[in-house]
Each structure stands twice: as structure tokens, then as C-alpha cells.
């Protein structure tokens, strides 16, 4: 028996909107720790890792570890039927091949339930090693989204370089080149508007921009985004989910041959 009651149902709606275009089918894993997902995009270049900790749910019942295969587009369709202020409850019986999403309006005057068919999803769970990153950049998530969008109108790949001076995003294409430099800036009214550049070693990596643009669909989840870079590792783009966990995107770099 599985029963997860999420008062801030909009979080789950936002999570699905953020990942449904990158990943088609995925297993949601439910355990005492929380509700999680790990999945790669079809080309195995990007990986999504979601964690919603059990403590973040108003009610969390998961009698045994369970993995539920879902088509994310279909799940997003169902969650779109929930209001932004609705409480969302996920329910599944042991051995059932369906999951039920129950939506309650804040005033309890409208209660809906949507039952979705589960599916078998072949997926391999990857071990993500703990890593010391050469550089960690924290910036407003809207600013990062703006940079990715702007650069993708010029080129297909982005070079992200972190030095003492700050973080530089560069691209080039048929019509020309573009460089955006963000310097550390902590003299802001609100902490979420700050740009913080922590650098242990200078690092410069090249990535396909279209994936970054897909990751920025996580922007509604958090005011800030954290970008962690190491020369031998995939970049991590992380959106914290307040009080609950995180949505992390990993992207493998492009490397000169």
C-alpha cells in the first residue's frame, strides 16, 4: 500500500513539466527515504535525478519499496488537471498495475481522482559518485535560463569557463559569437538574486546547449540554480525543491578528440 499526500501539489506539477520532454518513460521509486526518480534521456547524454523526501509529505505511507513505471507525458497530462493550489495524493495498492492521483481543492469542495495505467520500464540505475567539484556557481535561475536561451539563438554548444573573474558562457555559430560573463555579486537586496562563484580550480567544459535549455524548464521550482563543474565529470544543474529535496540534471561534456 502506497499513499503520499503532498499539500503543495504544484511542486509535483512543476517537476513533471521540467522533465517530461527530456525523459519519456521512467520508474518512480518509493521507499522510506522518499519518492525518487533516476532516468536518462533517450541518447544517454543527460540524466535526471529527483528526490522528494518523505518528511516533505503531509502523509507518507510506503509499506515496502516499490518501483512504478510511468509514461511521463501521460503523468503530466493527469497532473495538469490538478489546480495549482490543490493537494495531490498518490495512491497505489500492492501488486496493482495502476496509480491513482487524487486532487483536493484547498477548500475541499472539489475532489477528483485520476487513475493511470503503470507500465514496465527497463531502466538501469547508475551509481553517481560523490565528487569534489572544481567550481560551483549559484545564480538566479531566471538569469541562467535567459543566458541559455540567448546563446542557443547563436550557437549549438556552450563553453562554460570558471576563473577568478567569474563564470563565462560562450558560443559561436554561423552568424557570429557570443560571450556572457557573470561576476560574483553578493551585494543584492535578496539573497536569491546573488551570483556566487566558488572556485577551487579553473575549469572549462563544452556542452550541447539544447540540453541546458531543456533543464531550464526546472526554473519554476526554485529562485536559484547551482551549476557544479569538474573537468572529468558531467556538469550538475540543480534546482532545490524547498523543504523537500532536489531536481538534478547531469550532462556529459563534449570532449575534443
Amino acid at each position: 500500500m502506497l499513499e503520499l499526500r503532498l499539500v503543495q501539489g504544484s511542486l509535483l506539477k512543476k517537476v513533471l513539466e521540467a522533465i517530461k520532454d527530456l525523459v519519456t518513460d521512467a520508474n518512480f521509486d518509493c521507499s522510506a527515504t522518499g519518492f525518487s526518480l533516476q532516468a536518462m534521456d533517450s541518447s544517454h547524454v543527460a540524466l535526471v535525478s529527483l528526490l522528494l523526501r518523505s518528511e516533505g509529505f503531509e502523509h507518507y505511507r510506503c509499506d515496502r519499496n516499490i518501483s512504478m513505471g510511468m509514461n511521463l507525458n501521460n503523468m503530466a497530462k493527469m497532473l495538469k488537471c490538478a489546480g495549482n493550489d490543490d493537494i495531490i495524493t498518490l495512491k497505489a495498492d500492492d501488486g496493482s498495475d495502476t496509480v491513482t492521483f487524487m486532487f483536493e481543492s484547498p477548500t475541499q469542495d472539489k475532489i477528483s481522482d485520476f487513475e493511470m495505467k503503470l507500465m514496465d520500464v527497463d531502466s538501469e540505475h547508475l551509481g553517481i559518485p560523490e565528487a569534489e567539484y572544481h567550481a560551483i556557481v549559484r545564480m538566479p535561475s531566471t538569469e541562467f535560463a535567459r543566458i541559455c536561451k540567448d546563446l542557443s539563438s547563436i550557437g549549438d554548444t556552450v563553453v562554460i569557463s570558471v576563473t577568478k573573474e567569474g563564470v563565462k558562457f560562450s558560443t559561436s555559430g554561423d552568424i557570429g559569437t557570443a560571450n556572457v560573463v557573470c561576476r560574483q555579486n553578493t551585494t543584492v537586496d535578496k539573497p536569491e538574486d546573488a551570483t556566487i562563484v566558488e572556485m577551487n580550480e579553473p575549469v572549462s567544459l563544452t556542452f550541447a546547449l539544447r540540453y541546458f535549455n531543456s533543464f531550464t524548464k526546472g526554473t519554476p521550482l526554485s529562485n536559484t540554480v547551482t551549476i557544479s563543474l569538474s573537468s572529468e565529470l558531467p556538469v550538475v544543474v540543480e534546482y532545490k525543491i524547498a523543504e523537500m529535496g532536489h531536481l538534478r540534471f547531469y550532462l556529459a561534456p563534449k570532449i575534443e578528440e
Binding site: H44, V45, E124, L126, G127, P129, P234, A252, P253, K254
Partner: peptide, 14 residues
């Protein structure tokens, strides 16, 4: 040219 690596090149299967 540069080669696009896959995630499995960095993270092993469990």
C-alpha cells in the same frame, strides 16, 4: 571536432 560523451562513460551501472 569534439565528441559527445554519454553519461554511462562516467557513471557506472549499479
Amino acid at each position: 571536432g569534439s565528441k559527445q560523451y554519454t553519461i554511462t562513460r562516467f557513471f557506472g551501472k549499479q
